[in-house]
Each structure stands twice: as structure tokens, then as C-alpha cells.
């Protein structure tokens, strides 16, 4: 076996280990997740509201960066329409755990599911 093959094998092996480690970390995070009770809505890094996931509803988040239509259904939250151009936020689909936030970068919107139901404002 020559040097090149050995080196290639070394890197294939290294990258496989990195893939396995990443997958492990990912599943650990996933495993810890549970059905959230409420969501925190951040615009431009500021917490603007906390909304319960218990009640189904549809509402808008309007600000100087843009407009997003949010739907809560069966304790899952999703962005169903947005004024941004790439619509990545819509394709993120429904979220119900605290692991992955819903993010709309152009509109500077982050929706983070939380697990405790204290201090939930139901007026939105």
C-alpha cells in the first residue's frame, strides 16, 4: 500500500468518526427533547412574546423586517406564510420540541419552544 492510499484511508476513517460523533450528538439532543408547552417569539434578538401551544390558533408577526403568519395546531407550531424571499422558514415545517428553533433569517424571527408553562401570555 502506498502513501497516498494510506493517507486517503486515514482521512476516510477520520471523517467517518466525525460523522458518527455528530450523529451521536444530534441524537442525544433529539432524545432529550419533549413536547413543549409554549413558545418564545424573538424578533431581532428580543423576546417579544410567549405563546401557549395548548390552544390552536393562527396569528401574524408584523415588524419592520417583515411579516410571518404563524399557526399553532395540535401542539405544533409552524410558519405558514412569510414576506421573505427564500421561504426557508416555511419549509422548516412543524415544530413541537425545544431542540430546533423555527428561524426566519430575513425577518430576524426566531421561535423557540420552551417546556415550562409559567408566565404564558394568552392574549396574542
Amino acid at each position: 500500500m502506498n502513501d497516498k492510499k494510506l493517507s486517503n484511508l486515514f482521512w476516510i476513517f477520520t471523517f467517518l468518526i466525525i460523522i458518527l460523533l455528530s450523529a451521536f450528538v444530534y441524537f442525544i439532543i433529539q432524545g432529550k427533547s419533549q413536547q413543549g408547552k409554549a413558545v418564545e417569539i424573538y424578533v431581532n434578538g428580543e423576546l417579544i412574546d410567549t405563546v401557549s401551544l395548548e390552544k390552536d390558533r393562527t396569528f401574524f408577526i408584523n415588524n419592520e423586517f417583515g411579516k410571518n403568519e404563524i399557526r399553532i395546531k395540535n401542539q405544533k407550531i409552524s410558519i405558514i406564510s412569510a414576506s421573505c424571499e427564500n421561504k426557508v422558514c416555511i419549509s422548516q415545517g412543524e415544530v413541537h420540541t425545544s431542540t430546533a428553533p423555527l428561524v426566519c433569517v430575513p425577518n430576524k424571527l426566531v421561535i423557540q419552544v420552551i417546556n415550562d408553562e409559567t408566565d404564558v401570555d394568552l392574549t396574542v
Partner: peptide
């Protein structure tokens, strides 16, 4: 977005 929670995606991105 001024929020570090996007780093959740780091393992998948690697």
C-alpha cells in the same frame, strides 16, 4: 437573528 439556538443545526451541517 441574534440568537445562538441556530447552532442546533451544527451536527447536521458537519
Amino acid at each position: 437573528v441574534e440568537n445562538v439556538s441556530v447552532f442546533y443545526y451544527a451536527p447536521i451541517l458537519i
